[in-house]
Design a protein around this nucleic acid. Structure first.
Length: 433
RNA sequence: GGAAAGAUGACCGAGUGGUUUAAGGUACCGGUCUUGAAAACCGGCGUGGGGCAACUCACCGUGAGUUCGAAUCUCACUCUUUCCGCCA
């Protein structure tokens, strides 16, 4: 949610970028409701003050209030009750109007009205190789069994087996080792030219709950569209769709100390998505399934550090992909594609020889204080002032798609898969599977 | 799943209807003292909303209710702790 003060002062700008992001908002009604709210609040507070005066008088006289005061109190009670109801009503309306307004795009976000207008910021490596797709290889190797998964769980599920499972565990261990190491962090920061601009503190690995309450999910602004979420029947609980949802909300309602920021978390979570609206799309293999494991970075920072932190997370993504030596490109997402709570968004697409295309494997999201405002995640600054934190999240590796990329990029002519060098030690020295 | 107890500021903790404008302590910040520090003493020190400001309103787990008046009474819910049962 945006700060109402910002909307008061920048009504026209809010209308403009909301449209650029593809959201229908009613700024005029929002401001009108805001004004109504303050009017009612003023009236209510005057009466509350009078009620407090009456109570104070009773305190002073240490007795029962006079008949006249009781009568006046009764009047106040009725009117205050009415105003409170009215205020609650208005605040509900205001809240839903405010929730509909998206975050302000960062200054360098390209304006665009479809995902085709995302800007290619960088292309790394030779995207020339073609070959079998991961499902062909995975089926031959006995690594992926979708038929039995369909029998047990339905479409868009898979059993992963054998060396592919070992590979996943290996990638997880590699990422945890890398991002929990201060010297690796220093190295990544230096090579990205961010030395002195970001803290070098490593990530804390986290295994989060995989379910999240309705109100927390909504405060994160990631609940919609609900059709893409899995609801636990008869409970106000949902299966999380990304560790961002449960990591970003972890410190909700808390006031953190400035010295504890940046607060960097590396979450591992099985993530669940209904894939509503993707009927018939990407049906082959495990590219688009209802359940996949993911390593996700989440970081809470001070406002002034938020943007550099975003750049750091992007740099980490690039570093991790480059460690696996796979061709990829970086997209700066346009206003239409960044998402409602985002100020800026970057996607990474790794080249998949089996599809002959770049496909999305990573996203980095910078939300400024938009999520923190509703989560009430704040920081007490060194000077004692309390401010909202800035939130950042970014994929470290979506394991399913990462394995697709490895299998397709590292396939050998005789049908095997070479293990990327950095992972071999974790695989017990195995060079090929 | 059964039973009991509990939830008050960064932390500990007092408070069972009207001097609670939330006691007291710890921590923290500023000052006095000191060569410096500690100790001692003095002062400050919650969050959110409205207002240019003085100031004012709300908030004692959450929500509803009783009352002229609720941290305090009633109801529901959430969470925590302990015991029993079950379980990885």
């Amino acid at each position: 949610m945006l700060d109402i003060n910002y909307i008061r002062k920048n009504a026209e700008r809010v209308k403009e970028f909301s449209e650029q992001k593809g959201y229908k908002v009613d700024v005029d009604s929002t401001l009108k409701t805001d004004a109504e709210r303050r009017e009612i609040l003023g009236e209510l507070e005057t009466l509350q003050a009078e009620r407090n005066k009456l109570a104070e008088e009773t305190k002073r006289t240490k007795g029962r209030p006079s008949e006249a005061n009781i009568a006046r109190g009764k009047e106040l009670k009725v009117r205050i009750g009415e105003l409170e109801d009215e205020l609650k009503n208005i605040e509900q309306r205001l809240s839903s109007l405010l929730k509909a307004i998206p975050n302000v795009p960062w200054s360098d976000v390209p304006v665009g009205s479809s995902e085709d207008e995302n800007t290619v910021a960088e292309i790394v490596g030779e995207a020339t190789k073609t070959g079998k797709n991961h499902y062909e290889i995975g089926t031959e190797k006995g690594w992926i069994d979708k038929e039995r998964a369909a029998k047990v769980a339905g479409a868009r599920f898979a059993y992963l087996k054998g060396d592919l499972v070992k590979l996943e565990m290996t990638i997880i261990q590699f990422v945890i080792d890398t991002l929990t190491s201060e010297s690796k962090m220093t190295e990544i920061i230096a090579s990205a030219g961010l030395t002195g601009k970001v803290n070098e503190r490593p990530f804390v690995p986290v295994l989060p709950p995989l379910m999240i309450k309705t109100d927390m999910y909504d405060a994160m602004d990631r609940l919609e569209p609900r059709e893409d979420r899995y609801k636990i029947e008869a409970e106000e609980l949902w299966l999380q769709g990304s560790a961002e949802h449960v990591l970003g909300s972890m410190y909700a309602g808390e006031i953190l100390e400035e010295k504890d920021l940046p607060l960097r978390m590396l979450g591992f979570a099985t993530s669940f998505r209904q894939e509503a609206g993707t009927y018939g799309k990407d049906m082959e293999g495990i590219f688009r399934v209802h359940q996949f494991d993911k390593l996700e970075m989440e970081s809470l920072t001070t406002p002034e550090d938020g943007f550099n932190e975003h750049l750091l997370l992007v740099a980490i993504q690039k570093y991790l992909i480059e460690q696996l030596k796979m061709p990829y490109r970086v997209l700066l997402k346009c206003t239409f594609d960044i998402g409602k709570p985002n100020a800026r968004g970057v996607d990474m697409e790794v080249w998949l020889p089996g599809q002959g295309k770049y496909r999305e494997t990573h996203t980095a999201d910078y939300m400024t204080d938009y999520q923190a405002r509703r989560l009430k995640t704040r920081v007490r600054r060194a000077n004692g002032k309390v401010e909202l934190v800035h939130t950042n999240d970014a994929t470290a590796f979506a394991l399913g798609r990462t394995m697709i990329a490895i299998v397709e990029n590292y396939q050998t002519p005789d049908g095997h898969v070479t293990i990327p060098e950095v992972l071999r030690n974790y695989m017990g020295g195995v060079e090929q599977i």
